[in-house]
């Protein structure tokens, strides 16, 4: 990650805008990112299930650092986006920082490529 130079810091709102363990979609430059808040952390993932049939992730059930995808129940580690066994795949994750009440997404220059 350290070689990424052009990193942008994007304010996506206050911490209170995000309910605990209830995800919320954040649209940045046409891309939708699912943001989750737990009692200790916040996570950001591309809001697209790695399941072949796709679908959103932000409505999933959150347990600790894990997310259960809402449509196909795949278990995803929100820290690195890895899909847990017996399924496989990976979701793109984004670093997220909280300063005071404000929540920022860190996006590298080439990360949000529209399809």
């Amino acid at each position: 990650m350290s070689e990424v130079r052009a990193e942008r810091k994007i304010c996506i709102g206050k911490q209170d805008d995000f309910l605990e363990r209830v995800g919320r979609a954040v649209e940045v430059e046409g891309q939708v990112i699912a943001v989750f808040r737990t009692s200790t952390h916040m996570y950001a993932l591309l809001d697209r299930s790695p399941h072949p049939k796709g679908g959103p992730l932000n409505e999933g059930i959150v347990s600790g650092s894990f997310l259960y995808d809402p449509l196909y129940d795949w278990k995803i580690d929100m820290r690195d986006g890895m899909v847990q066994e017996p399924d496989s795949g990976q979701v793109q994750t984004f670093p997220l920082i909280v300063e005071g009440e404000d929540v920022y997404l860190l996006i590298a220059g080439n990360q949000l490529v529209s399809k």
Partner: peptide, 13 residues
């Protein structure tokens, strides 16, 4: 909080 997307128009870089 439950239904609306956060839409970031002008990112504060």
């Amino acid at each position: 909080a439950l239904f609306e997307k956060v839409i970031v128009n002008e990112p504060c870089t």
